[in-house]
Write a protein that binds this DNA or RNA. Structure first.
Lengths: 343, 343
DNA sequence: AGCGCTTACGAAAGCGCTTACGGCGGCCCG
DNA sequence: CGGGCCGCCGTAAGCGCTTTCGTAAGCGCT
């Protein structure tokens, strides 16, 4: 801070109001032990001077740092920005500010973000988005979070199984099952999967649900083509490209999130493949735009904003001895991108 | 911070390494004046203890707080989340963390966010998104920002004319002109406008460009139907609804951003109006999904991520005496949602 | 050996705030 | 009318860090 020595401090307010530092502090943070008259005067002076408390000093001195950290994989992915919006709205009601970090789906980076948040003395850390399967850095991150909790920090995760933290868990497996069930019900058997990288637990969970539902109908998921790609729009476009080229008999594509589904739809359109008459496409999440695509996307709705809000509320509540888990429901949104398999 | 009295402090590291506080501090922040041997030892101890510097204490003590604030209107709007991604990527390279605030397009709220950021001792504040026309609170915000600058803070704005701050300015007016030009070139004369609330400078600027281009062709914008609504997807849907009902002769809709255009397309689809054969639709921004809509959206591309990146870089550079302004170009993306007016 | 110079390091003074702790009136009660 | 209690407020001790300043040691030179 190369601050040029201005910005009113608490002393300035105190002096001007003719009270001590302690009284000014109490008056401004609305603590008791100050007569109404004095409190009002101090507040008036503060307003007049445009005083804002230095949050760092406050936090250092033991006042509660009213800031929480949110770590997302990719802020410009609607899935995460909708979660962020949910977190922010609750934070706002509580007068808390949110510091958003963006890990770019790099576990190493995520670890760094966690460290930064801890260094910023945040009250809580919310980690949104899939965990990483079998990643060593991931466990380093877990250690870091555990240490944070040991020192009184709160942690909540969204869509990630974690040891000791409160968690909001979307029902990825059941959602996958619902989607697979839907397609099978429409007569599809030649189903291709546009998958995100399988080091993501979300991907693994969704696949597990799909596998289960298909097995109920005597279909072995291992017999189905699965293209692994980035968990993004472009990944979906690429996966669809390969599915078209290598598995021309497919009648449906399950994309493991809406971003991939959008990419897949783009590829299909480019190749003149009609959806859903020639190919059904389904996704996961129900991002806002899913309903506005043409054809509108059949997907499984996850209440992202609500998940974000819930996670923060859990983190704000007094810690429970045992981690809370809230399982979110899912809702199959049947729209125009899926239809009966062509005769 | 109800931290339960743990978390290693600098003293702990210093003691353990057998050096003074000062030396430990210097060693860890890589300042000179420490012998390589000692520096290495201190760093080893710090790593061993899992020490992370308390950013608040550092900032208080005069170390630079490596945090910048970003204020956006709506984080779950792709326009803003793409800007945020741009800001974050640059921040990351510089080891800076970004605190994102979301003003929900409420100037009052925005003012509060600015105050919070100032209180958090941020190094810079980036304000993204349109300013508000003739809003008193807006000028309060300006005062606050000016005070922040006076105390050494840096300010950059994106898409907003500001007095003394560096600014990244999308070419809203020319973009509007280009779009209007495009439609007129296709033969459209009965053009309806789905406008965001006209208290937003972005809206005003875009309208000005449209007006100019239309005037060149002898069309008076005031003769055209304009529906004012929220600057969002739902606003666009509503505006299209009214345009359809009240101005059935329209052959084209200019939505003042892509979100509104998406809403408008949804309404048109619901009413069975073919795009572009019965109605052309164009938007502004070129959010990622615009190209993936069906029909793909004709729009004017603004380089959001780049704008965010530029804004942060300007804010990081040493202050110039005069505010810098960087005008971003625009690029007309002609896609499938606009076509010649039907004979 | 003595001089000045550089370099490595330590002591201590805060940064702006919160919060014990203690003092000083006024009130009630006996 | 005095003692105790309570409500209001001031004094001062830090929170964990950076940084100025000072000191001691090491160097090359005369």
């Amino acid at each position: 801070m190369a601050r040029g020595r201005t910005a009113p401090r608490l002393v300035d307010v105190a002096e001007r109001a003719g009270v001590s530092l302690a009284t000014a502090s109490r008056a401004l943070s609305g603590r008791e032990g100050v007569s109404p008259a004095v409190a009002e005067r101090v507040q008036a002076v503060a307003a007049e001077l445009g005083y804002v408390v230095n949050a760092h000093a406050r936090s250092l001195a033991g006042g509660s740092a009213s800031i929480v950290g949110l770590i997302v994989h990719q802020i410009d992915d609607p899935y995460f920005s909708e979660i962020a919006a949910g977190v922010i709205s609750v934070a706002y009601e509580h007068g808390i500010t949110v510091q958003i970090c963006h890990s770019a789906r790099d576990p190493e980076n995520e670890l760094r973000q966690i460290r930064t948040l801890v260094a910023n003395n945040v009250r809580a850390i919310i980690v949104a988005g899939s965990g990483y399967v079998g990643d060593e850095v991931e466990t380093a991150a877990k250690r870091e979070l555990a240490a944070f909790q040991d020192t009184g920090g709160r942690v909540a995760v969204i869509g990630r199984h974690a040891l000791r933290a409160d968690a909001v868990l979307p029902d990825n497996e059941d959602a996958g099952a619902a989607l697979a069930e839907h397609l099978v019900g429409l007569g599809h058997r030649q189903i291709a999967i546009a998958s995100g990288t399988v080091n993501l637990t979300t991907v693994v969970d969704r696949l597990a649900g799909i596998e289960r539902a298909l097995a109920d109908h005597g279909i072995d998921i291992d017999d189905l083509p699965l293209v692994e790609a980035e968990f993004t729009r472009d990944g979906g476009a690429y996966a669809a490209e390969r599915i078209l080229a290598e598995h021309p008999g497919s009648t449906a594509i399950i994309a493991l999130n809406d971003a991939m589904a959008i990419g897949a739809l783009a590829t299909l359109r480019a190749h003149g493949v009609a959806v859903p008459s020639q190919m059904s496409v389904v996704g996961f999440d129900d991002v806002t735009v899913a309903a506005d695509l043409a054809p509108s996307l059949t997907t499984v709705r996850l209440p992202m904003a609500e998940m974000g809000a819930d996670a923060l509320m859990m983190a704000l509540k007094d810690p429970s001895s045992r981690p809370r888990r809230r399982h979110t429901g899912h809702e199959l949104m049947v729209r125009d991108s899926s239809g009966p398999v062509r005769a």
